[in-house]
Amino acid sequence: MQIGIIEDDSILRENIETFFSIYPDIEVNISASSIESFLTQSLQVNQEPYIVFIDVGLPGISGIEGISKVRERFQNTHIVMISGTCNEESIWEAVKAGANGYLLKPLSLKRLVEQIDIIKNNGALISPEVASMLFSKINQKPPERKVKAEELLSRRELDVMDYLLKGMSYKEIADKLYISYTTVNDHVKKIYHKLGINSKGELLALFIN
């Protein structure tokens, strides 16, 4: 698995690189201190990173602004933001920009490797503090948006959507609803089609003021 890192703290970036180097199935193929440097390096790689970790507070182009630029270069890459503060505005902007996760520093590198499996199973990589803030905001979703979803989606699709909004992976949803992983995937495709969206980030954005 290829991984990209965009972090201006050189010590943290080197620590992440060193830690991942002990795992034979993980390779950091792009390591940069800025979005600009990442984009330059991206021209030299042959394989798209599966995940790119982006620091929110970067010099030059900010991490949140950089989400769309990374997406332009690598359309299928999963993007996880990392930040030293649980800033509500930054979290909403990152989600609306299409981030697949949001983690707070200090990072537990050992746990981070374990959590990569969450992304691989279509879950959202979110720190507990961020999840609490995010779900509180979602629970305040405008009534008209909730009504629209209830009108368009079946009962089972609504159940799947609610679990997606809680950051659960497809496997976790399958276990919760006693259905197969494939069935969950089919439900998600129908949810996205009916709501006119293409990603989990867009789904979250629908329910954030």
Rank of each mutant, 00 (worst) to 15 (best):
S21A: 13
P128K: 04
V70Q: 03
R111I: 05
S37E: 15
I67H: 00
H193L: 07
N139P: 00
I64P: 03
E27P: 09
K190D: 05
L125T: 08
T85S: 03
I51R: 10
Y192D: 00
I11W: 13
S34A: 03
W92I: 12
L107R: 05
L103A: 11
Q115H: 12
P59T: 08
Y178T: 07
S68N: 11
K120Y: 06
I126N: 01
T182I: 08
S62P: 00
G57I: 06
D55S: 04
Y50S: 12
S169T: 15
P49L: 13
L165P: 01
F207C: 00
E172N: 13
G123C: 09
N122E: 12
I3M: 05
Y181E: 00
S37Y: 07
V160Q: 00
M161R: 10
F20L: 10
V95C: 04
A149S: 14
L39I: 14
H187T: 06
N15G: 15
N87T: 02
S127N: 08
V80E: 08
D117R: 13
L107D: 07
C86L: 05
S34D: 10
T85H: 12
Q2K: 02
L12G: 04
L109R: 10
E202I: 00
G84K: 08
S10N: 13
N121I: 03
C86Y: 01
E89A: 11
V184W: 13
Y50D: 15
A124N: 08
P143M: 12
G201R: 01
N87Y: 04
Q47K: 13
K166H: 15
L152E: 00
L104F: 08
I3Q: 11
K146D: 14
K146F: 06
I35K: 02
L134H: 05
I79D: 05
V184M: 10
K141Y: 06
S34Y: 12
S136N: 15
T85W: 07
A174V: 12
S34N: 04
E7Q: 05
V56R: 02
S42E: 09
I119W: 03
N100R: 08
S33G: 03
F19M: 04
G60K: 03
E202R: 00
Q44V: 07
V28Y: 08
N139C: 01
I22S: 12
Q140L: 13
I67L: 04
T85D: 10
K190A: 05
F20M: 14
L204Q: 14
T77P: 07
H193D: 10
G66Q: 04
I64H: 00
